[in-house]
């Protein structure tokens, strides 16, 4: 039972009102576009609002305190889970990274957080849920968390602390009491402001992404892409990851687009790997993080996460 069926009716009504003949490619494209964008925007607004409201209870300053006290593997898992709830704007990358390391959060756990936070976030999950269903959204969530935890553990085991030395001064753990007190109204205000901000940033990408997607949906034959990017093509996953790296800011537009590519024959694992690369490996984030860590550490980080994403993609191509 699809609770979004009224949107389909509305889309059909609108297309009819515009004088489009049912059953044509144009009809397909227009109804798909209208129903999908409405559904995505409704879900985005609702989920981002709830998540950002919850987040006011878990600011990074408090997360840092939680993580600094944990056993190392527990810290990795916890860091990845908390990363899901925490927004990660590239602006905050440096204070976040330095703040964790200064407070004595293990380097591995810090990286688990750095991987999970941008890769597994509510915007990506909402888009995946609306366009692929809850199974794929869950699969993305689980594999994103697994990559974050494992690459964090690996980086921790490599003992690379010296590659951040010089940037970080050890400081005592400062209490989160410095944070301004928030009343319930402040939390709701924050959630509202944050939701509007995100929607303002992504609406155009979603429209363009779904728009191009709708066009492909209506006009490009099914399985057209299977011969270039089907599950039997070994190079599809690494190639998808490589083109995903510079596409960070377009994550909101990329997901609607790839959903249609999947329909036209791109294998599911390839699609998931592509999305993970778009969100998890971002060039602008690397440029900023370069200021606080040696290039070697950054490359090791990118290589480990990249390899994790490629393996996940290949695994899902084989399984799904």
């Amino acid at each position: 039972m699809d609770i979004f069926f009224p949107l389909g009716w509305f889309a059909a009504w609108l297309a009819g009102a515009l004088g489009i003949v049912p059953g044509t490619s144009l009809w397909d494209a227009v109804t798909f576009f209208v129903a999908d964008t409405l559904k995505i925007f409704l879900l985005l607004a609702a989920i981002i609002f709830v998540v950002s409201w919850l987040r006011t209870y878990l600011p990074p300053e408090r997360i840092r305190k939680l993580l600094a006290r944990q056993h190392k593997y527990v810290a990795n898992v916890l860091a990845a889970l908390l990363g899901v709830f925490t927004p990660f704007c590239t602006c905050s990358a440096i204070p976040l990274f330095l703040g964790f390391v200064e407070a004595g959060v293990p380097l591995g756990a810090t990286f688990s957080f750095l991987v999970a936070s941008p890769m597994v976030n509510e915007v990506a999950l909402v888009l995946l849920f609306s366009l692929f269903g809850w199974r794929i959204a869950l699969l993305y969530l689980a594999s994103g968390l697994a990559i974050a935890v494992l690459s964090g553990i690996l980086i921790g085991a490599l003992r690379l602390e010296r590659l951040v030395a010089g940037f970080v001064k050890k400081a005592e753990v400062i209490d989160a009491a410095a944070l301004p007190k928030l009343a319930r109204k402040d939390r709701l205000d924050y959630a509202k402001a944050y939701t509007l901000d995100i929607l303002k940033n992504v609406w155009l990408y979603v429209l363009v992404g779904v728009g191009v997607g709708a066009w492909i949906h209506g006009y490009v034959p099914v399985d057209f892409l299977a011969r270039y990017a089907g599950a039997d093509k070994w190079y599809a996953v690494p190639f998808a990851v490589l083109i995903g790296i510079p596409l960070y800011s377009n994550a909101a537009g990329v997901i609607p687009l790839v959903s249609v590519l999947t329909e036209k024959g791109v294998a599911m694992g390839t699609t998931l790997a592509f999305m993970m690369a778009v969100t998890g490996l971002s060039l602008p984030e690397f440029m900023i993080l370069k200021k606080v860590m040696k290039t070697r550490l950054l490359l090791i980080f990118a290589a480990i996460v990249g390899a994790g994403i490629i393996l996940t993609g290949i695994l899902f191509n084989a399984l799904l």
Binding site: E61, C91, S92, I94, L96, L98, G99, A171
Partner: peptide, 12 residues
């Protein structure tokens, strides 16, 4: 950014 950290904060 160090000034933000000195205040015990991590988000900008």
């Amino acid at each position: 950014v160090q000034r933000i950290l000195a205040m015990g904060l991590m988000s900008s």
